[in-house]
Structure formats: C-alpha cells, structure tokens
Design a protein around this nucleic acid. Structure first.
Length: 558
DNA sequence: TCACCTCACACCTTTGAATAGG
DNA sequence: ACCTATTCAAAGGTGTGAGGTG
C-alpha cells in the first residue's frame, strides 16, 4: 500500500485526500516524513460486517453509553488475594448501622489513588452472597489497612464509598477487521480509539439529528489495545481481528479504562496498527504505525436510543436482544404494540447461535472475547481464571510510561512493564460474530503517517495478559486514573512531561486470562476533541493525533 | 415542560467448571 | 491418565419503561 487515502465503501460523503502533512503537522513534528512506515506499506484492512455497519450508518448509528446496563465493574479493582468483588446479579447491598463510621477512607483513598472519594453512603456496604458476609477490609485492601478498633476482636468491616457500580456497554456492531499485507514475522500492536467527529453537541429532533450547541468538554482520551497485542503479522492475518470487548461508558469516574464518551456527541472509531519490535519486549518502533478509519462506523453516543430504526436494528441483529424480537408475545412485541409509531422492520432470519452445536468454535477470529473456548489448543489449565479476573498483575508490578522530549521538540513516549510474555493463544470469535457476519467487507479510509512521536514507544511493555488492555490518559497532574480525570483541553498538548501517576490494574468480564485479567494502562494522549474536520471532513488524523503528544510516566500504586 | 439520564427488570446468550464417556 | 463432549448454573449483554433530575 502506498499510503494513498482510500475511501470507505460505506462512506456517504466525499473524503478529501489527506492534505500535505507539512502544512498541517503539529509543532515539533517536523521530522516526520510522508513515507509509509517500513513493514506497513502493503497493509490493507477490511471491515467485516460492512453491510450491517452500513445499515446502521444509513439509519444513523447510535451507541449506548449510559451507565445503565448489567455489566458491572467495581471501583475497587482488586483485593489482597487478587480476587474481584462479586458482581452482577449476585451483588447485593446490605445495610450496616447508620452510625458506623467509614474508618478507612484515607486508606482506601490512598489505595485507589483517589484524592477525593465520592460521598460516602452510610447505609450501604457491598456484601457477597457467596461470602455470606459483608466485605472485610482485607477484601479491598491492596495493602493492609490501618487496623480498626474492634472491641470484640472481630474482623473489621470496611465501609465502602457509595461509588455506583460502573455500568458499561459494548459496541454493537462490534468492529471486526480482516488485515492483510503485514509482515508475517513482524509483531504488531492493534489499537483502537474513538475520537469526536466534530465539536458539536447534537439533539434528536423530528426524527433527525441536529446540532444543539457546542460540544461538552471531552472525556479523557483512552484507547483500547487488542489483547492479542503484540502478535505477529501471521497471527493477525490468519483471523478476523475483533474488538468485541471494547466498552463504552459515560462515567466520568471510570477507573477501568473503558472508553469514555459524551452523550449526544458524534464519534469515530479508529484502528491503529503499530509495528512492535521483533522481540518480546513490546518495543514499538517509533515510526511504524498506520491508522485506518471506517466511516460507516461513525456513531452517536447516546444514553438511550433516539432513533427507533436503530433500536430495531440492534434488536434484530444482536443476539443478546433476542428477547425483544417480534413474533411471540414477547416484551418487545408488547412494547411494539403499545407504540403506535414504532417502525417494525420485518424480521430477518438470523441463525440463532443457540441452535448451533456447542463445541469448538471457528478460530479464524481474533477477538477480545474469552479465551477458553477460543483456544482449542489451550485448555483451561493453561488459562486459569482468577476469581473474577481482577488484580491479575501483582501489585508490585509496574508499567512505566515516560515522556521525553526529543531533539526535535516532540514528545516520545515509552512504556515499560515487568511481567512475562505468555504464549500467544489462538483466538476465535464467539458464534455470534460468525453468524452476524455477512461476509461483506469495507476497505478503510487510510490515514497514514510516520511521525515518530505520535504513538508511545512501549519499551519493555510485555503483554500482561491476553485480555483487554486499555490505555487511559491522565490529566495534567499526578492524579490516578481512579481519580476523576480532568477534561482535556481539546487544543492543548494534553500532557506535561515526566509526570507520574498511579495506574490501577483492573479487569472486567469473565475472560480466561493467562497472566491476569484485563489491564488498563494509561494511554498515549490522543486528542479526544479533534480539531475542526477531524477525519470526517478532510482534516487528516495526523493533524489531530499529533497535537497531543507526550505521555506521563505511570506506576502501579504501591 | 422538556430533554436527558438512571436503574431495575425480564429475557436471552455466553461462559466455564464439573461431569461423563471413550 | 488423557482427551473430548455434554450439562448446567452463573455470569454477562440487551432494550424497556418508569421514574428522577436539572
């Protein structure tokens, strides 16, 4: 591939060619070239399920980002045993005496790296039906909490701040791509981020989206690193690469590395293919990465669906929404009947995954889905699930990401970590993905640049596990990710140099893990609020990404 | 009043440990 | 002992709709 701008087949609007970078490049990025990075010249990326995406795009894709949902993460990502708190439907809240103090607020604050804990709720404490008891302080302590005065010598009970469970949502459709043209033995890192399309806030009025004002301050930028990363070109090319477990939230306090978006704003996912070093040190070659954009994956972030057509499409195609499909006397049917104007789209004939035999799935996918059934060659003995996937990285582990200014005035970012690189598993999508695939593909709009300072140099960052790995940026201070992040100035450079901040390692979901659960790491600092015309109206991503360079160093809280 | 958000809910799929059988 | 297939309860994902909030 010669670096030409390719148009997405799903695009409905003309996309200008990428402008001359020398005119649009960021300050301090003068040394980049127009040359396609070596090893990425021939990369082609095809969007799977393009037909489905186009249907959504035509109707105006919406993605739920509200806190509502059933996937619950907890503000305390680990306990001393490396276990996560119980979750989801097993989670209950039990009352404690109102006057019981919150004895370890300071300790919890320190552990979580949060300077300001949310308001305490004196009435609530998490309890586990399994444990048959309220959580003890040791359940949540990354390190021993100060002993509490207990007259009877019993284990002290820790009051948990009333941080709500963090509800998150996946994207649907999820982004799946087929990649070709990679160097077979070269290792690559697949990264996805979601950037605002413009600086507007929208409203849905009279069955259409219209600008409702200026955009709200951008959420802190985060990126989703495919859990297979780094992997060889052969690995990436032999399977469809899925970003199924990319999750969205509007929770400003999100501490789990989920991508945070503003409701009623328009966003564009982007795929970055970053060339890593050939060893297991996860060292990125500074200049080798390319970005791919599929314009039909643009979506509006909403807390509840605005367009009934989108609702219907989701119901029709998402297996988890099967219960709302028409036909029988389902809730959806009842709802549909109650809604006079509800446009009922004739039901298609989706093949139900549940009707397919269980067993070994197709392994021609690289998903962020679980690994147990996606790794035929790996039994569960190879991928022991932690209690629930939390704290899979020793607390003593650290990942360092440092920012240095090079001679050209650009920021160079680096990561470092100290965990082992486990075997690279085979991966596969769940059946739903294969079933949903309509075999249609779209070649992305390609934006490529070779700025050595844009993406982090992940020196020595070994894949802590094969699960979701997120990179979350930080504010311009030393606050933890667990602290309320500060909105980035859309036009600021985003970060100061050589700063440290704490990084929680956490996870969600039930995935098998090799070396831990999902790990969420601070990100390189992508612009969350792009400059005018970001990607969607011709301004190259080069311009946007390059504006935010530099990453602070980070460290696991000790 | 309105737009937007939250949350509990029912329904469904997926997961993965346990078990059975070869 | 090992492997594969099956079972099933738990976990997780979905949109709904009433109610809350500003």
């Amino acid at each position: 591939m010669s670096g030409e701008l390719k148009e997405s087949a799903g695009s409905e609007r003309p996309r200008p060619r990428e402008p001359d970078r020398k005119d649009d490049g960021p300050p301090g990025a003068d040394d980049r070239t127009d040359a396609v990075p070596e090893g990425l010249e021939d990369v082609k990326v095809e969007l799977q399920d393009a037909g489905l995406w186009q249907r959504f795009h035509k109707a105006g894709t919406e993605m739920i980002i509200t806190k509502a949902g059933r996937s619950i993460c907890y503000p305390f990502p680990f306990n001393v045993r490396g276990e996560e708190p119980p979750r989801t439907r097993d989670t209950q809240f039990t009352s404690l005496p109102k006057n019981e103090c919150s004895p370890n607020r300071d300790a919890l604050s320190r552990i979580c790296g949060v300077s300001q804990l949310p308001t305490w709720n004196q009435d609530l404490n998490w309890a586990s039906p399994r444990l048959k008891r309220p959580f003890l302080q040791t359940d949540f302590a990354a390190q021993p909490l100060p002993a509490l005065p207990q007259a009877d010598g019993s284990s002290p009970t820790v009051k948990i701040p009333s941080m709500q469970p963090v509800y998150i949502r996946r994207m649907f459709p999820s982004i799946k791509v087929k990649v070709t043209g990679l160097q077979p033995k070269t290792k690559y890192i697949f990264v996805m981020d979601i950037v605002a399309v413009d600086s507007h806030r929208y409203k849905f009025n009279e069955s259409k989206w219209s600008v409702a004002g200026k955009a709200e301050p951008a959420m802190p930028g985060r990126v989703f690193v495919h859990p297979d990363s780094p992997a060889t070109g052969t690995h990436w090319m032999k399977q469809v690469v899925c970003f199924q477990k990319l999750k969205l939230t509007n929770n400003y306090m999100d501490t789990f590395g989920h991508i945070m978006l503003n409701s009623m704003h328009k966003y564009q996912p982007r795929l970055h293919i970053v060339q890593a070093s050939e060893n297991n040190k996860f060292e990125l070659k500074k200049t080798c990465f390319r970005t791919f954009v599929f314009h039909e994956t643009e979506f509006m972030a909403v807390t509840s669906y605005q367009n009934h057509q989108i609702t219907q499409l989701k119901i029709e195609h998402n297996p988890f929404a099967k219960g709302f499909r028409g036909g029988d006397d389902t809730e959806f049917s009842r709802s549909a009947r109650k809604s006079i104007n509800y446009p009922v789209i004739p039901r298609s004939n989706p093949v139900q995954a549940s009707l397919l035999p269980r067993g070994r799935p197709n392994n021609n996918y690289a998903c962020s889905s679980n690994m147990a059934d996606t790794c035929p060659s790996l039994s569960s003995n190879h991928y022991q699930q932690t209690t629930a996937g939390y704290n899979t990285v020793p607390l003593g582990s650290s990942i360092q990401m440092t920012t240095q200014e090079n001679s050209g005035g650009c920021m160079q970012n680096s990561f470092s970590g100290n965990t082992d690189l486990g075997p690279l598993p085979k991966r596969a999508c769940r059946e739903e993905d294969r079933l949903l695939s309509d075999n249609s593909v779209t070649t992305s709009t390609l934006t490529t640049w070779s700025n050595p300072q844009i993406l982090p140099n992940m020196e020595n960052l070994q894949p802590l596990n094969r699960e979701t790995c997120m990179f979350a940026n930080s504010a311009n201070d030393n606050t933890s990710l667990l602290a309320a992040p500060q909105p980035l100035d859309p036009l600021s450079t985003g970060f100061n140099n050589n700063q440290n901040f704490s990084v929680p390692f956490s996870s969600s979901g039930t995935g098998f893990v090799s070396n831990g659960g999902m790990n969420f790491l601070p990100s390189c600092s992508y612009a969350q609020m792009p400059q005018q015309g970001l990607g969607m109206n011709g301004t190259p991503f080069l311009h946007e990404v390059s504006r935010n360079v530099g990453c602070p160093s980070m460290q696991i809280p000790q």
